[in-house]
Computed example of a mutant assay.
Amino acid sequence: MIRIEIQPRWRFHQSDGSSLDPQGLALLQAVHDTGKLTEAAARVGYSYRHAWNLLGKWQEFFGSPLIELERGKGARLAPLGEKLLWADQRIRARLSPQLDNLAGELELELNRVLQASNPGLRIFASHGFAVAALREWLEQDPSWQWEVQFRSGSEAMIALHRRDCEVAGLHVPVGPLGALSLKRIQPWLRPDLRVITFVERTQGLILAPGNPHGVQGLADLLRGDLRFVNREQGSGTRTLLESLLRRDDLDSAAINGFHNEEFTHAAVAAFVASGMADAGFGVEAAARQFGLTFIPMARENYCLLCHEDSLDLPAMGALLRVLQNPEFQTRIAQLPGYALSRPGEVMPLPQALEQWRKESLL
């Protein structure tokens, strides 16, 4: 089974023709995490001398230090070092899903030619921490051709309706907003669909560490001094936010940066962490990943949908076994803001709809 990994790579260029490969970014991350250059160098496998020389090369190129050393206080990132680290994290957060999608497509084609594995499942789901963990877990089983594509919720539903995939991700808010969410996807809901339960997750406001602007809720986003970063149009998270704003009679047009878009929860958090925005909206796990403040706003049922006849596919049994695997469930339970919701259980769509309808009355 051939696996393909595509990673973003960037270089710096000066007007005099000199260039620099940012190979020291891992070292900057380690300095940020440990607060000591000796420990940071050991973590990335460098000698202290090599780490020092590398930082010196970077300082010479930029004409500004990347770290600051204080006797008895260890090391910390200088402003330039912080900006470089956040830039790298933003690049990876924004591009990784698209690159993973491309890698998955190439893997599928190559392995079909090589006949290296059995036909698996095409799973289209919005990018999130639980789905990313599921993808990683599935790829540990080389006997199946798993194709996990990160798509918006609406794209996934349309693809399932057209039989362009066997499994689609769906998140339905808990409470009255759930009914509105289901109304939007009603054209693609059919009686033969089956719901595979997965997780509950919490979404809310992602803010700079310590909440320096004193944000208390969505109404504060309309203040002129706040810069906002949003998810892309058509994403379930964007739809959820717009529903919350309508519920509270808040005008999205008054939000500074409402049309600034990022394509993943992590990219939104990285944007806020870099200081380019004061607030964003997404899952709690993204906020915690970047050490940001999080204010919960809504809970969602995140499940998987499939057609009834797809349950007979051999790979579907493998998927259900992963969802029911205690080790995989432990991995998901460790994600901030995620809670297990009887993962791997299958129920008819009408039964799930009735359950969500009852929740909407709460």
Rank of each mutant, 00 (worst) to 15 (best):
A42Y: 11
R43T: 08
V44I: 07
G45P: 01
R49G: 12
A51V: 00
W52Y: 15
L54V: 11
K57P: 03
F61P: 07
G63S: 02
G63F: 02
I67T: 07
E68W: 12
L69D: 11
L69G: 09
L69F: 14
L69Q: 15
E70T: 15
E70H: 12
R71L: 14
R71K: 15
G72N: 03
G72V: 03
K73M: 05
K73H: 14
A75Y: 09
R76L: 08
A78D: 02
E82W: 05
K83Q: 13
L85D: 01
L85F: 05
W86D: 12
W86P: 05
D88K: 08
D88A: 15
D88E: 15
Q89H: 13
R90D: 11
I91F: 08
R94G: 11
S96K: 10
P97N: 01
P97D: 00
Q98A: 15
L99G: 02
N101Q: 04
N101E: 03
A103G: 06
G104C: 11
E105T: 07
L106A: 13
E107G: 00
E107C: 00
E109T: 04
E109V: 06
L110C: 06
N111C: 09
N111S: 11
R112L: 09
R112Q: 14
L114D: 04
L114Y: 09
A116M: 07
P119K: 10
L121E: 08
I123L: 11
A125M: 07
A125F: 06
S126V: 08
G128H: 06
F129H: 12
A130R: 02
A132P: 06
A132F: 10
A132V: 07
L134P: 00
L134T: 01
W137A: 13
L138M: 05
Q140K: 12
Q140A: 11
D141I: 00
S143E: 15
W144D: 03
W144H: 05
Q145I: 00
V148Y: 04
Q149C: 07
S152P: 03
S152A: 10
G153D: 14
G153F: 09
A156K: 00
M157C: 07
A159K: 03
A159R: 04
